[in-house]
Computed example of a mutant assay.
Amino acid sequence: MSSAALARTDPSRYRVSQYPMLFEQQARYHDLDPSRRIGRDALIRWFEDARVVVEQQAAGVDFGARAGGVRRLLASVRLDVRAPLRWARSYRVGIGVSRIGKSSFDYVYGVFAADECVAVGESVSVHVTDGGPSPLPPAVRERLRELTVPAIPGRRVERDPARLVREAYPFRLDIRTRFTDLDTNRHANNVALAGWYLDALAELHLDVLGYPLGGPLDGLSPSSLSVQYLAEVVYPAVYELRVGVLGVDETSVRYGCGLFLGPRCVGLADAVGAHAAATDGNQIELASAFEKYRMRR
Results as ranks from 00 to 15, higher is better:
Ala192Gly: 02
Ala192Gln: 03
Ala192Met: 04
Ala192Asp: 03
Leu193Met: 14
Leu193Phe: 06
Leu193His: 03
Ala194Ile: 01
Ala194Lys: 02
Ala194Cys: 13
Gly195Leu: 10
Trp196Val: 00
Trp196Lys: 04
Tyr197Leu: 04
Tyr197Met: 04
Tyr197Cys: 01
Leu198Glu: 15
Leu198Phe: 09
Ala200Glu: 00
Leu201Ala: 12
Leu201Ser: 09
Leu201Arg: 14
Ala202Gln: 13
Ala202Trp: 11
Glu203Met: 15
Leu204Tyr: 09
Leu204Lys: 08
Leu204Ile: 10
His205Ser: 13
His205Met: 10
His205Thr: 07
Leu206Lys: 13
Leu206Ala: 11
Asp207His: 11
Asp207Thr: 14
Val208Glu: 04
Val208Tyr: 07
Val208Ser: 05
Leu209Asp: 07
Gly210Leu: 10
Gly210Ser: 12
Gly210Glu: 10
Gly210Thr: 11
Tyr211Ile: 06
Tyr211Met: 08
Tyr211Ala: 14
Leu213Ile: 11
Leu213His: 12
Leu213Lys: 13
Gly214Tyr: 09
Gly215Arg: 08
Pro216Met: 12
Pro216Phe: 07
Pro216His: 13
Pro216Asp: 11
Leu217His: 15
Asp218Gly: 14
Asp218Ser: 15
Gly219Phe: 09
Gly219Pro: 09
Ser221Trp: 15
Ser221Ile: 10
Ser221His: 14
Pro222Tyr: 14
Pro222Ser: 15
Ser223Asn: 13
Ser223Phe: 13
Ser223Leu: 10
Ser224Phe: 12
Ser224Asp: 12
Ser224Trp: 05
Ser226Ile: 06
Ser226Gly: 14
Ser226Pro: 04
Val227Tyr: 11
Gln228Lys: 11
Gln228Leu: 15
Tyr229Lys: 09
Leu230Ala: 11
Leu230Val: 07
Ala231Pro: 06
Glu232Thr: 03
Glu232Ser: 06
Glu232Val: 01
Glu232Gln: 11
Glu232Gly: 06
Val233His: 02
Val233Asp: 02
Val234Pro: 00
Tyr235Leu: 05
Tyr235Ala: 07
Tyr235Gln: 06
Pro236Glu: 03
Pro236Thr: 03
Pro236Gln: 04
Ala237Cys: 07
Ala237Gln: 13
Ala237Tyr: 06
Val238Pro: 02
Tyr239Glu: 05
Tyr239Gly: 02
Tyr239Cys: 05
Tyr239Trp: 05
Glu240Pro: 03
Glu240Gly: 08
Leu241Phe: 01
Leu241Arg: 03
Leu241Trp: 01
Arg242Gly: 06
Arg242Val: 05
Arg242Ala: 11
Val243Asp: 00
Val243Ser: 00
Val243His: 01
Val243Trp: 00
Val243Ala: 00
Val243Ile: 05
Gly244Cys: 03
Gly244His: 01
Val245Lys: 00
Leu246Thr: 02
Leu246Pro: 00
Val248Lys: 02
Val248Pro: 02
Asp249Tyr: 02
Asp249Trp: 02
